[in-house]
């Protein structure tokens, strides 16, 4: 098994490092180059959300297995302000920063599994998975 890779998100260049780490692991796990791009882009979205809304946090990428299936898991974790209405935040076009509001719903479409857990005042955790085809 490959070890998890943890990237602290504090500055913009950390977003690039996180998506490169995701792409690299996905490549190692045998994901197609299209899937590598989908995974890297989903990481970019959640990492940017950490930076914008929580200012700092971390991204952890790791390999996962489920019987014969191999996949990649991405966890984005922060102790920022949290999200008041998680359902709303997952809606296309919803943004409290007047930006595109496609980060969370878009990342959900790019990955196979997507879970958003958030508590106001405590933080936000996004867990996403993609399985190798």
């Amino acid at each position: 098994m490959t070890a998890d890779v943890k990237i602290q998100i504090e500055r913009e260049i950390d977003i690039i490092a996180a998506r490169q780490a995701g792409r690299q692991l996905a490549g190692k796990l045998g994901f197609s180059s299209t899937d590598q791009t989908l995974i890297a882009t989903a990481i970019s979205e959640v990492a940017r959300n950490i930076l914008i809304y929580a200012h700092h946090g971390e991204i952890v990428v790791g390999a996962i297995e489920d019987g014969p299936r191999t996949g990649i898991q991405v966890i984005a974790n922060d102790e920022g302000p949290g999200i008041e209405n998680v359902e709303l935040a997952l809606r296309d076009g919803y943004s409290t920063k007047n930006s595109l509001g496609l980060g969370l719903p878009g990342a959900r479409r790019l990955m196979d599994d997507f879970a958003l857990a958030s508590e106001v005042g405590r933080g936000t955790r996004v867990t996403m998975k993609k399985w190798r085809r």
């Binding site: 180059s33 299209t34 791009t37 989908l38 979205e45 296309d92 595109l100 496609l102 479409r109 790019l110």
Partner: peptide
Amino acid sequence: IQPEVAYTLVQLGL
């Protein structure tokens, strides 16, 4: 725009 990037933009809804 690379083919993979184009496909990703469509998925994102951009």
